[in-house]
Design a binder for these strands. Structure first.
Length: 397
DNA sequence: TATCCACCGGAAGATGGGGTAT
DNA sequence: ATACCCCATCTTCCGGTGGATA
């Protein structure tokens, strides 16, 4: 068995030419279906060519609609074509830098200022950044990717202070913000003060349609797989399914990679429709397993409680899986494990977190005299499988 | 039309664990 | 050792909320 395992990985790849191309972090030289967005953003930055400040810009669209790729693509182009531009581009991903302090830390680092990653007063970092900015004497374009994660904690104070900064700057300096977010209403959720000093040009990223997804997959296959090792029909199958469920190019590319790996492992000479179909299922389950594995203890306990109740519901033993019902089930489990349970307020919040991670589906139930509550409508996996998965991670019931 | 259920979810504060500077 | 910083997570407090019911 061990030998078999080793052999399967020592086999010389027959299909995959360049694995990096099959990852979503790879940025190809052209982005099918996003020509309009590229054009718009390109034109906004064109102000830099006549040394005037570009407008603030916001990118909005669901995950996997090419926002980050377009931003990087256009910026790379400027860097390459106009190396002497009196401007500097800074990219910050707010999924890691999700507080004002950490963003400021990144900005300082980008300007070669060394500051500690924590422990300092925020104002000191801000002042150091402004000093370095003057010193640099170039226009700045700051990209804040996944900015919703920052705004959720910070309430937009950083965006406010960075956009306000422009009013104090001399003619030859400017700071342009490019904010990238997954939610369309993120601008509306900023506080009014911020919104009046920060009015970005909006670029919208609609989900990919099937033909565009096919083009994207075809492009990746051409670059990442050896010639003649795939059936075009397999790409069509992936494109069709993904277009129908989400239009998420990242997922489509993940599925393609998984399909190629499956074909490779089987020793098949070609990536077929069958591999595509199998990959569509596998990717989903694996993602769920990974998400659950990284969940903190109480999240898991709550998920286990939900699985328990959902199963009972399918046997008509429970009529609805509501917050209060979940809470009591969870509390019992926690007590049994000698863990002190969290409060209901917290559990209510965790339910929203589990929903955001795609593990459960919630609907509000306005039950009149029965009161209002969240009700779990569905889980990402059937309750029994969910229980099995949780049990395999050391949670015993 | 007032009441009331069973929660919702914002705000603010406590807690504890990371850090720097002196 | 002491006095500051930042920050994620959780608790406490509490004013809503939609619609069935009286």
């Amino acid at each position: 068995m061990m030998e078999e395992f080793i052999r399967s990985y020592r086999v010389k790849p027959l299909i995959i030419k360049d694995k990096r191309v099959l990852r979503d972090s790879y940025i190809p030289s052209s982005l099918p279906g996003r020509e309009e967005q590229i054009n718009t953003f390109h034109n906004i930055l064109a102000d830099l060519l006549v040394d005037s400040p570009p407008d603030h810009t916001s990118f909005t669209g669901k995950p996997g609609t090419g926002k980050t790729a377009v931003a990087k693509h256009v910026i790379n182009k400027y860097k390459k074509e106009y190396p002497d531009l009196r401007a500097k581009f800074i990219y910050v991903n707010c999924s890691q830098a999700n507080t004002a302090y950490r963003v400021m830390y990144q900005l300082n680092r980008a300007l070669q200022v060394l500051v500690p990653p924590s422990g300092y007063p925020y104002d000191v970092l801000y002042d150091k950044f402004v000093d370095a900015f003057y010193q640099l004497n170039k226009r700045l374009v700051v990209v804040l990717d996944e900015v919703d994660l920052l705004v959720r904690r910070d309430g937009g104070r950083l965006i406010y202070s960075l956009s306000r900064l422009n009013y104090d700057l001399p003619e030859e300096l400017s700071l342009t913000l490019v904010v990238i977010s997954n939610t369309a209403d993120f601008l509306e959720r900023l506080d009014p003060r911020t919104r009046s000093s920060f009015e970005p040009t909006r670029i919208i990223f609609p989900p990919y349609k099937q033909p565009q997804l096919y083009q994207i997959l075809h492009q990746r296959a051409e670059l990442g797989l050896k010639p003649g090792t795939w059936e075009n029909e397999a790409l069509h199958v992936i494109a069709a399914k993904v277009a129908q469920e989400s239009g998420d190019a990242r997922r489509a590319i993940d599925v393609l990679r998984m399909a190629a790996e499956l074909a490779e492992k089987e020793g098949a000479g070609k990536l077929t429709v069958d591999h595509a179909r199998k990959a569509l299922d596998t990717v989903n389950e694996e993602e769920i397993a990974i998400t659950i594995r990284t969940l903190p203890l109480h999240h898991r306990l709550i998920l286990a409680a939900i699985a328990e109740l959902m199963e009972m519901k399918s046997r008509q033993k429970v009529d609805r899986v509501s917050t209060g019902r979940i809470y009591r089930e969870y509390r019992d489990k926690a007590n049994k494990m000698m863990v002190s349970p969290l409060t209901m307020r917290r559990v209510s919040g965790i339910l929203r977190e589990l929903e955001a991670q795609g593990l459960i589906e919630i609907v509000m139930d306005y039950g009149g005299a029965r009161g209002n509550t969240k009700v779990v409508k569905a889980m990402a996996l059937p309750p029994l499988e969910m229980k099995k998965l949780l049990a395999s991670m050391g949670l015993i019931f």
